[in-house]
């Protein structure tokens, strides 16, 4: 598993790193910038919504906090070096993670749908603050950032590469979590939190940690977005649709998997942008977008990767039972246990 993951990851990074050198058009790189933003945010959301099973709807608030942090630092500033804002991203991530800490401590006392409501309430609180703290945010007038002094011919590339780095960082964090006891504990929390608490799993610690890391990364993406857009408004910087897109992408690709959210972001964001471009200014593209989502969820109800993984597993098991009839089966240790179908995969 480890070698396969490394090979897949290496190939993925290689393709992404070499892509701009093929002389691609601006519209394509612009599309890729947005795809990478959503791939990173979906992977980050997956840490909380996927692995820990806490469906946060408040992540867009942290995207906005990151965007406004970047805007507040560089508003009215003349950039001597276009890379300066990128260097501040880790700081923005750390500050946002620190903001997320008390939020997680409070909100994660609730679960499931109540947690979703608490977090979306936080999102609207932050949006209201952004509209009303006019002295800082400029309210609905918005806030400007200096235009990045990159040559027009390769304007998107620094943003693109920064996002590739952020996505790699997020995937490495996820991979590290999966391979460590943090991942093991998160799965236990998602499956049965009370039981996990009762067997000494550091429940509060791991879920708050996952939340802080997740919102820190989301805020860093927000910072890149603000710098890329150069002008931000509360309704776009703290937009519930960002949260919803991230959740849909993670579910589509397969939550609690390493590559699922990335796959979901590539399919949905690329699909949405292409459909919006083809179907013009009308809102018809939204219908087509919903259709793509519905068809995939109908055919692969647990998301693309988990459903395909399950089918592969079932096929392998069926084959191994065929070839070794009389071999060790799940029932072997259960002596005379009746063959009751107890698979709970659908709820996993």
């Amino acid at each position: 598993m480890s070698r396969g993951s490394l090979v897949r990851g290496g190939l993925f990074v290689l393709v992404l790193a070499t892509l701009p050198s093929f002389g691609l058009q601006h519209w394509f790189l612009n599309l890729m910038v947005f795809v990478l933003m959503f791939a990173t945010m979906s992977s980050a959301w997956n840490l909380v919504g996927g692995f820990a099973g806490y469906p946060s709807l408040g992540h867009a608030a942290f995207f906005g906090i990151g965007a406004y942090s970047m805007a507040l630092i560089f508003h009215g500033h003349v950039l001597s070096n276009g890379y300066e804002p990128f260097l501040l991203l880790p700081l923005i991530g750390l500050i946002s993670a620190a903001v997320g800490f008390p939020i997680a401590l409070i909100a994660m006392r609730t679960r499931a749908d109540v947690f979703a409501i608490v977090t979306i309430t936080f999102l609207f609180m932050v949006q209201t603050l952004a509209f009303n703290l006019r002295g800082w945010t400029g309210g609905s007038q918005g806030l400007s950032l200096p235009v990045a002094p990159f040559p027009a011919v390769s304007f998107e590339e620094p943003f693109y590469y920064t996002l590739v780095l952020l996505l790699c960082f997020t995937l490495l964090v996820t991979f590290g979590a999966l391979r460590s006891k943090v991942g093991l504990s998160l799965v236990a929390v998602r499956a049965d939190e009370d039981k996990a608490r009762g067997i000494g799993v550091r429940v509060t610690g791991v879920k708050v940690l996952a939340f802080c890391v997740s919102v820190g990364i989301t805020a860093m993406v927000g910072g890149v977005w603000a710098y890329y857009e150069t002008f931000i408004y509360p309704q776009f910087a703290i937009d519930p649709l960002i949260t919803i897109a991230v959740v849909l992408m993670t579910f589509l690709g397969g939550r609690a998997t390493l590559w699922g959210p990335v796959l979901g972001a590539f399919v949905l964001e690329a699909g949405q942008q292409t459909l919006a471009y083809r179907l013009g200014g009308s809102q018809f593209y939204l219908i087509a977008y919903a259709l793509v989502f519905l068809v995939i969820m109908l055919l692969l109800p647990r998301g693309v990767l988990p459903t395909l993984g399950d089918r592969l597993r079932q096929r392998r098991r069926a084959r191994s039972v065929d070839s070794t009839s009389g071999g060790v089966t799940p029932m072997a240790a259960g002596a005379a246990e009746p063959p009751v179908a107890l698979r709970r995969g659908a709820s996993a």
Binding site: S180, V187, I199, V206
Partner: peptide
């Protein structure tokens, strides 16, 4: 009450009741 998404072995490992420091060690 077991964790259905974990393997049988992992169900045992997760129940070992460890301290904070071991959280960042290898899964199994």
């Amino acid at each position: 009450r077991v964790f259905p998404q974990l393997s049988v072995l992992e169900n045992l490992v997760v129940a070992a009741g460890r301290g904070w420091s071991q959280l960042f060690t290898k899964r199994v």
